[in-house]
Amino acid sequence: MKKQQWTGWGPGAPHAEQHYLVEPRYLAGGGDIRHVSEFLRASGWKDKSKPGGPLVFDSPDKSIRVGYDPFTQPGGWTISGKATPGREAWHAAFTRQVPVEIVAGFTDALTLPRSAHAPNVWAPLQEQRWQTEQGQHFTAMSPDGGAWLQFHQSKPGEAHWWAGARNEHGRIWDANFTASTPMHLVQAFSTALADPQQVMRPRGNVPPSTHIRTTSVSVRPDQLSAWQQARVTAARATTWARNSWATTRPRRQAPTNPYTAAGGRARR
C-alpha cells in the first residue's frame, strides 16, 4: 500500500481523514449511493422515495425510473424505461456491490443529450486493452480477468447484456440489461467500467482483496464536500442550460405554401 498526499485536493491539514484510492475501480465495492442520487436530483429528476423505503427517482418526462433497494435480496439498482414509438420498454439492474461510479456512468447518461455518433459498446473496452472473443456470445474481458461484459444470446430472439466482476473470493457483482436497452446507455456503462481512474473509499470501506491496489490519502471533510458539490453544480448547470435553450430558442415558422396563401387548398 502506498501513502501520499493527493495533490488534486491539496495538502493534508488538521482533522484530515484517511481515505483510499482504489484500483481497479470495478473491485472497489458499492460506495456512497448519493454519488448517483444527488446527480439525478440536481438534473431535475423527481424524488418519489418514501421515508424509510427504497430510493426512487423519475425522469422529468416520467419515461424512466431509477430505483435503489437495499432491503431485498440481492437488492441494488433497477432502471426501467417505458416503451416509446419505435422503441420497446427496457430494463437494467445492478447488484449492490457495483461501484457507484460505474452505475453513474449509466445513470448520468440518462440526463444528457444523446451523441450524434453511432454508439459502439466495445470501443471503450478495446481502448483499455480488454480482450474480446466472439463465439456464441460476444465477450470482452479485462486484462486481469477480473471483469467482463458479454452480449449473451441463448437463441434467436432471446438476448441480454451481462457484466460482472470477481476477485479471489468469487463473483462480487452482476449487471444485466435487456437487449432493448438503448445502445448509447450500454456504451456509457462500458466506458465507466473500463475507466482506469481510481475511485475513492473511506477507511473501513475497502473490500478485502489481494486483487486491488490502494493508495492512502488524507482528505479534509471540506475538501470532500467541495468535490461532491462540484459534481452536483455541474449537473445543475447542464440542466439550466438545457432548459434555458428550450424556452428561449426561436420558433421556426412553417413555410408558407403559395397556393394556400392565394386561397387554394394544399394537397396532402
Rank of each mutant, 00 (worst) to 15 (best):
Q5V: 10
G12I: 02
A13E: 15
A16W: 01
H19F: 07
G29P: 02
G30Y: 03
R34D: 05
E38Q: 13
F39R: 11
L40G: 09
G44I: 00
K46Q: 12
P51L: 04
G53T: 10
P54K: 14
D61C: 11
V66D: 04
G67C: 10
Y68D: 04
P74G: 04
P74N: 13
A83L: 03
R87Q: 13
E88H: 03
H91F: 10
A92R: 04
R96C: 00
G105L: 02
L110R: 07
T111F: 02
L112F: 01
A116N: 04
P124F: 05
L125M: 04
Q126W: 00
W130N: 05
Q136T: 10
T139D: 00
P143E: 09
D144W: 02
Q150E: 13
S154N: 10
P156M: 07
H160E: 15
H160G: 11
W162L: 14
A165T: 09
A179N: 15
T181D: 09
T181E: 08
M183G: 13
V186R: 09
S190D: 14
T191V: 14
T191P: 09
P196M: 15
P196G: 13
Q198V: 10
R203K: 14
N205G: 05
S209N: 12
T215L: 11
V217D: 07
P221H: 07
D222M: 05
Q223N: 06
L224T: 04
S225D: 08
A226N: 09
V232T: 09
A235L: 10
S244T: 12
W245P: 06
T248F: 09
T248I: 10
R249K: 13
R252N: 04
Y259I: 11
Y259C: 08
G263F: 07
